[in-house]
């Protein structure tokens, strides 16, 4: 059993189509810890000690958020800036997070083909996530491929929400039960390509 910590960050929660449903479903998964960041820190006054405690208590750290301007919502950046202190997460003696998994579950408005050299985003999705990936590296954590949904705005009309949400539940359960095969994951994971280990 891995201890899973899910950080949910969505300042426009009320208007969300996909993330709201994912969050609602995640809350029904037993044995994982869920933090609604914007509910806990509506004034961005992050309590560093509490957050570091949480990190120490878990093995898999998963950030669920919409992709805002090729990055996380602002509060996640504040959280990173404050929580990942030197001497704790990196630098001299900073090995408290060593060996833990860092993962993102994101929704992107653009279609998959936009994230190509010819597409209007001009870069692959993973390129935009490199700051987070390198953050994991510096903290001696393992960065796992993100669980993503492209064309998230069109998902409700295209019937994509339900499979993405149930895929998300499977992901969380697999992480919890050590049935997620990190090595077999493609660069970007979708509900169709979840690398679950076959149960022994």
């Amino acid at each position: 059993m891995a201890r899973v910590l899910l950080y949910y960050a969505h300042p426009g929660h009320r208007h969300s189509h996909v993330n709201k449903e994912m969050f609602r479903a995640a809350q029904k998964v037993d044995g994982i810890t869920i933090v609604d960041m914007y509910a806990e820190y509506p004034r961005h006054d992050i309590r560093v000690e509490r957050e570091q405690e949480r990190l120490l208590d878990h093995d898999v750290i998963l950030f669920q958020h919409p992709l805002f301007w090729y990055s996380t919502p602002g509060l996640v950046k504040d959280w990173i800036d404050l929580t990942l202190q030197s001497g704790f997460a990196y630098g001299d003696n900073g090995d408290k997070l060593k060996g833990k998994i860092l993962m993102q579950a994101i929704t992107a408005a653009g279609p998959e083909d936009a994230y190509t050299t010819d597409g209007y985003q001009h870069f692959p999705l993973r390129t935009f996530l490199t700051p987070m990936e390198q953050t994991a590296n510096l903290c001696k954590m393992r960065y796992a491929s993100p669980y993503s949904l492209y064309s998230a705005l069109k998902a409700p009309g295209a019937g994509e929400v339900a499979p993405h949400v149930s895929g998300y539940v499977s992901l969380l359960e697999a992480l919890r039960d050590d049935r997620y095969d990190f090595d077999a994951a493609p660069d970007v994971v979708s509900y169709a390509t979840l690398p679950l280990k076959v149960e022994a």
């Binding site: 936009a114 209007y120 064309s151």
Partner: peptide
């Protein structure tokens, strides 16, 4: 309603917005 001063900036763009970006590109 959507896009009032309260959720400015955090409200997702419409599908029309995405379409127009694709066309421009």
């Amino acid at each position: 309603m959507h896009n009032t001063r309260l959720d400015r900036g955090w409200h997702p763009p419409g599908t029309r917005d995405v379409d127009s970006i694709v066309e421009e590109n």
